[in-house]
Design a protein around this nucleic acid. Structure first.
Lengths: 196, 196
DNA sequence: ATAGATTATAGACTGCGGTCTATGGAATTG
DNA sequence: CAATTCCATAGACCGCAGTCTATAATCTAT
């Protein structure tokens, strides 16, 4: 590690810290890259040398959620039925995103995922979320608790889409929207079926 | 109708036609407002006099879908069970959007809906889609076909969120994605429940 | 018919995210 | 230690969506 590399890492950290501070203070899209650069006393060149885009910073933060998933899954008692595990995970995830990223953060992230020709993280089926969901579903199927009329992969995708759909709606609906309550009601119906 | 107003309407039509042509030719975000203005031989002033934003044009087109919903609903035989009506509507809607707007169109629309402080159409619970869904659900509940553990409004929201979630995923996933098939499989599970 | 009000439009301008190029100081090489 | 290479950074620049202002053509009132 040369002194130049050390300085570069310092610069990157300073940009990251400044950006996250500003985002949480003013909201993602009321902060410009110029402002981040000015306040961190760096430059556009430095910024785009360290990050591929303004959203990239956000993505770094968002990826921390995968650690949260792992930790949470491990904290679940083995004895719990698959349905309970899945519902608890979903609720905890919503609370985490609400508190850690906020509506504004989710809105920005979901908008970025729609940018053409961007490798977005949301649709990356390699992300830990899918593996964890699939494992939970698969266990439930083996124990006879969940339907086997669809594969564990399909059910995991269904569940993750449920979460995305709920988060998307949270982002676009103006009024009150209780994320945890919404996903709970949703899963209740999904598990039970809406047919009488 | 003075000659001035007539000319203005002509201008608006010319911009609209040019824009839609360019969008379908090159895709929404590979067309700039400057290009629309140049090709339609008008100006920025004219463009923003007639439309509130570049997306506004798209929204006009998207709103046509409500006519489609009405027509489709009326074409459904009364004798059909509520579930069948809802599923047929959902599938027809997906085919309509796939063919009339395309993935690129949906992507742009869904990204626009995430723009802060924009009255977006997707979350407007006054749109005909909600009324139609709620009517179908309500009929089904009265006939004892659907659960009454949630209100018709809640179930209609659940169904519309299912559609949004599926469309969002269509927009962000790169590979093959059979919209009609996905919503069908989804509703199959939603109606039946994934619990064993 | 003429003066004055109105308004659709032209196009300069702003602020944004992101790119490109030049440069100075550190690293490497002999 | 001198010469050369390298690369993190600075900041001018670009293309974009959207705003603002000036203007000329048309409409209205007398």
């Amino acid at each position: 590690m040369t002194s130049r590399q050390e300085k570069a890492i310092e610069t990157k950290k300073r940009i990251l810290r400044t950006a996250l501070d500003l985002f949480s203070e003013k909201g993602f899209d009321r902060v410009s890259v110029d402002e981040i650069v000015r306040k961190s006393e760096t430059s556009k060149g430095a910024f785009y040398g360290h990050f591929t885009s303004k959203y990239d910073i956000f993505l770094e933060k968002f990826k921390e959620i995968d650690q949260f998933y792992s930790d949470f899954q491990e904290s679940l008692p083995d004895s719990l039925p698959a349905e309970q595990k899945i519902r608890k995970l979903a609720i905890a995830q919503m609370e985490y995103l609400r508190d850690e990223m906020g509506r504004d953060g989710i809105r920005s992230l979901y908008a970025y995922a729609l940018t053409p020709s961007v490798d977005n993280y949301l649709s990356d089926t390699e992300r830990p979320l899918y593996a964890i969901l699939e494992q939970l579903v698969s266990d439930g199927q083996e124990k006879g608790e969940l339907t086997t009329s669809a594969s564990s992969g399909q059910l995991a995708l269904l569940l993750s889409r449920s979460m995305r759909g709920t988060l998307y709606d949270w982002a676009i609906f103006d009024g009150d929207f209780d994320l945890a309550g919404e996903i709970d009601g949703w899963l209740e119906l999904l598990f039970r079926g809406i047919r009488n």
